[in-house]
Design a protein around this nucleic acid. Structure first.
Lengths: 146, 146
DNA sequence: TATTGTTGTTACTTAAAAAGTTACACGAAA
DNA sequence: TTTCGTGTAACTTTTTAAGTAACAACAATA
């Protein structure tokens, strides 16, 4: 399948909103930074709004974060747009009559959950504020090189 | 896109080979346990062979593990079939002219790597032997319930 | 208040990745 | 020498998400 960039693009949107909060922020302008279409941006923003991460007004190009950037973690964003889906995919169609096929899903599922939890815990320790600060630092590094 | 079950299916194949090592193990028989086609099994086995995890003989249905099951970790299997690809997907097409678009890939990439590493480290601590033992225990639990 | 711009949403199309399928040359073993 | 199986290539189908088009509802303002 096509690989989902929802998580990355959502963080992009949130960082963009916060960094350019004084400006008029249409979905088209944001789409320009992500290099995608305005509808894709609005679709993601709709999800982020549903998860209580941003606040928007219909007809008005003024999206705001619904919480402080320090209070939004990468995990919040991940769960908003990817839900709690499997990170490593079990084959859920194995032969239940077979010793291996009949038990591997439960066994592997437990180890997969364990690995997923380890990854998501990392995301729970990174805030949107961290991302924004890092972006601004990288930008200064770039400029210092010129 | 369709979600890859290569990792799960590969572990399935390896466990199957080890558990039924005395028997004649055609790709068709293994495919029956996974509920897939023999070609899919042979394709995966070809990759596992390339990674030095199994040994096969063309024309003969006698695949063997190339190492002891204790010496094969889930990480070995993962890297064999999924390579070292991104676990969380960066959007690699962002606007370099924009402060966010121009720096977010580097910033997010680092956090993604960190989370991925946490997950893969878990897999490095689980052996095929662990999986097989767990499968056999689950099977006994099942049978005790009957 | 008519116009212009924007959001929010639906429906549809396209793209990409992996599984599934077909086919077949080649090897093994009886 | 026949039968079974592997290894592999080429092609088709399935799945999922991005991209696109369209439009009603809302906001601001000329």
């Amino acid at each position: 399948m096509r690989v989902s960039t929802r998580f990355s693009d959502s963080i992009h949107i949130l960082a963009f909103i916060e960094i350019y909060q004084e400006k008029k922020l249409s979905s088209e302008l944001i789409a320009n930074s992500i290099e995608t279409s305005p509808v894709v941006v609005r679709r993601l923003m709709s999800t982020l709004r549903g998860a209580g991460l941003i606040a928007t007004k219909k007809g008005t190009a003024e999206p705001k974060l619904a919480k402080e950037s320090k209070q939004i973690t990468l995990l919040d964003v991940y769960l908003a747009v990817e839900k709690d889906r499997q990170l490593f995919t079990l084959d859920t169609n194995t032969n239940p009559e077979c010793i291996v096929g009949g038990n591997i899903q439960k066994v592997l599922g437990a180890y997969y959950e364990d690995a997923k939890m380890a990854a998501l815990r990392k995301f729970n320790n990174v805030s949107l504020q961290d991302i924004i600060e890092s972006i601004l630092v990288e930008q200064k590094i770039k400029q210092a090189k010129e």
